[in-house]
């Protein structure tokens, strides 16, 4: 497993057009990003296609990494997840463009080193806090993030009205926020 510093250096060298660094980055991270794409798309052929798009985007946007505030692996995963959800939504809407294009630039829109300081233990903490939520909330959060489900799809899945699911999930997020800030 590559260290955070290595991944960061490879991204930095990609920004300078270093092809060897790009290949190293691919070798070290493609299994994780392919896993993310597969989780979202649940289709190998589509995930393979999207993985190519993901690395094209990484290569093209590497120069913008330094200012985005996410840790290197989170930046890569965010790109992978957003591209895969783009593809998923395009599939669902019969080939139209998804709406993730804007959201894909979350990292670019949000300045500051804040997130960089979040310790690795935070993921475990988030997982632990998710477990404290009432039945279904943690699943909804995971389905939204890791499978790209929308409020409408979550409402259908949990068989509740759209407004209810939103209130329900937002209450869950309040609890989650409180649990995390303790």
């Amino acid at each position: 497993m590559a260290t955070r510093g290595q991944v960061e250096e490879w991204i930095g060298r990609c920004a300078l057009g270093d092809r060897k660094a790009f290949v190293q980055l691919y070798d070290a991270t493609s299994a994780k990003l392919f896993g993310v794409a597969l989780r979202v798309l649940n289709d190998r052929a589509e995930a393979e296609e999207v993985l190519q798009e993901i690395y094209v985007r990484i290569w093209q946007n590497a120069g913008r990494y330094a200012s985005n505030g996410l840790s290197p692996m989170s930046w890569l995963i965010t790109i992978a997840r957003n591209r895969a959800i783009d593809r998923l939504r395009a599939r669902k809407s019969g080939g139209g463009r998804g709406e993730m294009e804007e959201v894909a630039d979350l990292a670019d829109a949000a300045p500051g080193p804040e997130a960089q300081t979040i310790a690795a233990g935070e993921a475990a903490r988030l997982a632990a806090c998710l477990e404290t939520l009432p039945e279904g909330r943690a699943e909804a959060v995971r389905r939204a993030y890791m499978e790209g489900e929308t409020y409408a799809e979550l409402a259908e899945r949990f068989a509740v009205p759209l407004n209810t699911i939103r209130t329900w999930l937002r209450r869950g997020l309040i609890s989650l926020r409180e649990c995390l800030s303790v």
Binding site: D27, V36, E48, A110, L126
Partner: peptide
Amino acid sequence: AAEALGWGERLARLAETEVPDVAPPKALR
């Protein structure tokens, strides 16, 4: 912006922890 970034970071790390690695086919490289 920092709040959104914090959520983005945490969620990405959750995915990093929970989503299993899957090696892509060699030819894809």
